[in-house]
Amino acid sequence: MASLRTRGYSHYRWRTGQIAWLLHRLTGLALVLYVSMHIWVVSTLQLGEGTFEATMAVVQAPLFRFLEVGLLFCVIYHALNGLRLIAIDFFGATEKHVPLFWAVIILGGAAWIWGGSTMIGHALHQLEHGQAFFPF
């Protein structure tokens, strides 16, 4: 009988608010994983210039620059939707939550395209100069 309780996720029609919430949750979890790795990587600073530069050479390779475009999506979406949530929590914006979501997508999309293309530009620059795509 317990399984019959969960028909909501599979059968209820997904609307803007629920999609926004799911994406917020997924990007948040992705960011937790990323931040954990990032703090560990930056901590290699302590091990001296050599180790740091070696680590940086790996994580600034073209492969990672492309992965960072995905990371940028997570950061931008989570931040902007977070602002939308604050508008709902503190500024009574519930009735406008759908247009606000589109504002998040449009502004965020523009920022993502601008930032992402800069990153891809760096990657292509690196590839032109003979750097390997996979740094391993």
């Binding site: 930056v42 530069e53 940086m56 600034q60 800069t118 990153m119």
Partner: peptide, 14 residues
Amino acid sequence: HFLNGGDVTWNEVT
């Protein structure tokens, strides 16, 4: 990421 030409170096950070 954007104003430093995309490369993070030991010198900058330290």
